[in-house]
Amino acid sequence: MKSFVMVLLLLSSMVWVDARPLIFAPLPLSNTQRVFEDFSPMIHYLEKHLGERIEFHYEKQYDTIVRLFQENKIDIAYFDPLPFIALHKTFQGAKPLITFHESGGTHGYRCVLVKFAGDKIDVNHSPRMKVALTQPLSTCGYIKTKFLLKEYYGKELDNMLFSYLGKHDEVALSVIRGDFLVGGVKESVAHEYATLGLEIITSTKMLPGFTLVVNTQTLTQAQIETIKHTLLSTPKEVYQTWGKELSYGMSEANATLFDALSHDALEFNVPPHGNYP
């Protein structure tokens, strides 16, 4: 009888899993519109090859995405390294599958410290300058910005006024607008806003690229293999039409690349909120 109930529960669970579409959630690097238009082509491409509907799910907060993933409400996610490390630390079902290349084909990216070209920075005269950050769990957020400020200016981020703005492009624009003197963003975002006078002060070494992470508890091995095979065999002329972050190619994710960064994440105690409203 017990076995029968177990089988029934398992079947019910499979029916439930099959009943809903696959859920894809990207990190909110920019606004909804932009994120949607960047990822939709890839989603459609995957839908076509998987033969299943994939629903787009937008969340503003990194930690919400991590939580939903842990709750098996997200099947596929697009993460930068740090959120993945945070997720993987508590949820072993998260598996990095594909890493997206940066412009020029590099298998990783850099975080940069940016400022508006029209602004002059004198850290000695403004020790509590305002710093714009993405999110606590963002790789280019607190951890790498703190590192870059220390390395370039010899100053501690914790002694400055910092605030989490959520998205990379929002950090870039807030610096251009003059709301913040400096900010930490992904290098490609800094380049994107260079035409508005955003300039890079300093950058980190190469970090593991943004990664497509799958939920091994909601997806079958066959589905995971199909996703991997589909994306890795996507013709260049196809992925070049996808969103900017996805258009420079892909390779299979290497979990060991995240180890070094795991050490950084453990080293710093990331404050969940900024000290500046």
Partner: peptide, 16 residues
């Protein structure tokens, strides 16, 4: 172009 970038940013800053 580089001057324009800064001016563009300034305009953005002014009108935003």
């Amino acid at each position: 172009d580089s001057e324009k970038a800064v001016l563009r940013g300034m305009l953005y800053r002014k009108i935003y």
